[in-house]
Write a protein that binds this DNA or RNA. Structure first.
Lengths: 181, 181
DNA sequence: GTCTATAGCTAGATAGAC
DNA sequence: GTCTATCTAGCTATAGAC
């Protein structure tokens, strides 16, 4: 008779997520995860071959959550408003949980089905908002700005004064206006 | 009679830089640095109190190098061309040495004198290229785009096909055109 | 699936002789 | 400033009983 399960895959991932959110992925240890879920570290190896496998599941979990968040933002019924809402939601997520957000751009690229990818979502709206021929470059311009601004803001890289939030808003406005059809 | 110096601060920093460039800052170890410069690890502690102190010097060295590189790019005599050249140089550096580039936005923000900061350089050119009233936000827009695009490109985050380089160029063009006075 | 015990490694950092 | 020797700490991962 096997031992009774004292935890679950979902709880393990949730615990690991919380630890990454607080301390960053580099400092995630199997021992800390085990302690949080209330088991001993070696027991984790019954579910995950190694630390990398656990971290992979955490990344997938974060990726899915972000995708859901941005998809929910893109429901205004207007392509331009959707783009603005997506940008705001991404920026907000990055500031709220920088370590989780960083996970999306760390290590081997996540393989995400196209129909589930935020990239495809932005591209779709951009093809309506602006000239379809230029949609790919325009989408990359917008996403790069949001990503770059968010990570720089998290890193404390804006130190010339002025309102950082105002800069974000005006950058977003200018970008949307200049890509508009 | 004290022992003869077998190395120097410059060589130690250079060695650490090379290791960070190759493997990333997280994996920089005092033992590896010592081996590369040809001394024993404990000897490093005569010059640096701890690993963080050494890494701090590496960051400062990279920061100074990047600043010099971008400042040299901004000498075309024309503000708009300077901005384009800065953007290209930053993008190129980030792709060439992603781990060193990442160092600039990692950990506690680097304290850089304003007159030596790239931020001030871009702001200066932007105030000539575009409307001075909007220069701060426009500078942040431009730098965020370049930074975001570069890090996403390094992370392999552009997977919808098309030419990534063409997207960068057209994004840069659009940005410069739409901020022009 | 849980546990205890432990192997095995790597790293940061200190002590003290020269 | 260099060395050897060593301490301490933390971590990944495995073995094997229950």
């Amino acid at each position: 008779m096997p031992a009774v399960a004292r935890t679950s895959a979902a709880k393990i991932i949730a615990a690991a997520r919380r630890l990454v959110e607080r301390h960053g992925a580099e400092r995630l240890s199997m021992q800390d995860v085990a302690q949080v879920v209330g088991i001993q570290a070696p027991s984790l190896y019954k579910r995950y071959a190694d630390r990398a496998a656990l971290l992979r599941d955490v990344r997938l979990s974060v990726s899915a959550q972000v995708q859901r968040t941005l998809a929910r933002a893109a429901t205004t019924g207007n392509a331009s408003d959707d783009l603005r809402a997506i940008a705001r939601a991404q920026h907000s997520y990055a500031l709220r949980a920088p370590h989780l957000y960083a996970l999306l751009f760390t290590g081997v690229p996540l393989a995400v089905a196209d129909h589930e990818s935020t990239a495809a979502l932005v591209l779709d709206r951009m093809a309506v908002h602006g000239e379809p021929r230029n949609a790919l470059a325009a989408a990359r311009l917008l996403v790069s700005f949001v990503h770059g601004f968010s990570t720089m803001e998290c890193a404390g890289a804006f130190h010339l004064g002025g309102s950082v939030e105002a800069s974000f808003d005006s950058g977003l406005d200018l970008l949307l206006a200049s890509t508009k059809r």
